[in-house]
């Protein structure tokens, strides 16, 4: 085992990590936004809207993320082609981002829904009694409280997502894992680079989960 070659390769690996983090941040933000919309639909009294959200969540939660990534990679360029009638190069990054956002939204939806339901009916009534509309009551009263309660779970899910971004290997995107593998192959040190990548993923996830645990304890008081 020869780990000495890793240091000179760090700038390259950092490029890969940047792509991983970019994908992560955008997928988390987009996923939570879409998940929140889905949660609101799910809780709507309109059976069509809540049925749609329920179906969405059920389908995405029952298929592998990898399937969604590959499907979108193959299908998104085609769909755009139909819509615009013209060939639009989307690239693996965009199709992966859409796949992650849509897939994670199903998981975030369930977290947000539980968070909203944990806020008492009285708070909604109080907001309405002050003359707030549904939108105002959600935005100013319910969601700020719900998000505070859900924060640890949302972060936990995002740590899982951080690990899952490595699946973009399937469509050839140069994320952290892929760039470590390609460096390792070029230098003839595949084992070392793979183990190093594993160690980095471990440290980031481990420390992030420790932070979440601490946050959880603080919120519990």
């Amino acid at each position: 085992m020869d780990f000495s070659q890793i240091v000179p390769a760090l700038p390259d690996l950092w490029e890969g990590m940047k792509l991983t983090l970019e994908l992560l941040v955008m997928a988390v933000v987009g996923g939570i936004a879409l998940g929140t919309v889905l949660a609101l639909l799910r809780l709507s009294s309109n059976p069509l809207l809540s049925g749609f959200a329920k179906g969405y969540v059920n389908i995405f939660r029952s298929v592998p993320l990898l399937l969604v990534i590959i499907w979108f990679y193959l299908a998104v360029p085609m769909l755009l082609n139909w819509i615009t009638g013209d060939f639009v190069p989307v690239g693996a990054f965009a199709s992966c981002l859409v796949a992650f956002m849509m897939f994670e939204a199903a998981y975030y939806c369930e977290i947000v829904r539980a968070g909203i339901q944990s806020i008492s009916r009285g708070q909604v009534n109080a907001a309405y009694a002050l003359g707030m509309t549904y939108g105002q009551a959600m935005r100013l009263v319910i969601l700020p409280q719900a998000f505070r309660k859900m924060m640890p779970l949302l972060l936990q899910q995002s740590i899982i997502l951080f690990q899952d971004t490595s699946l973009v290997y399937a469509v050839g995107l140069m994320d952290f894992l892929s760039s470590a593998r390609s460096r390792g192959d070029i230098l003839g040190l595949p084992h070392e680079f793979l183990l190093f990548a594993g160690a980095v993923y471990f440290m980031v996830s481990f420390f992030a989960s420790q932070m979440v645990k601490r946050l959880q304890k603080r919120l519990a008081v």
Binding site: S166, L177, L194, G198, Y201, S205
Partner: peptide
């Protein structure tokens, strides 16, 4: 086992 991505673990089991 919880903090290393599944794919990394798989590569380790299969290649290393």
């Amino acid at each position: 086992f919880r903090n290393v991505p599944l794919l990394v673990q798989l590569f380790i089991w299969y290649f290393v």
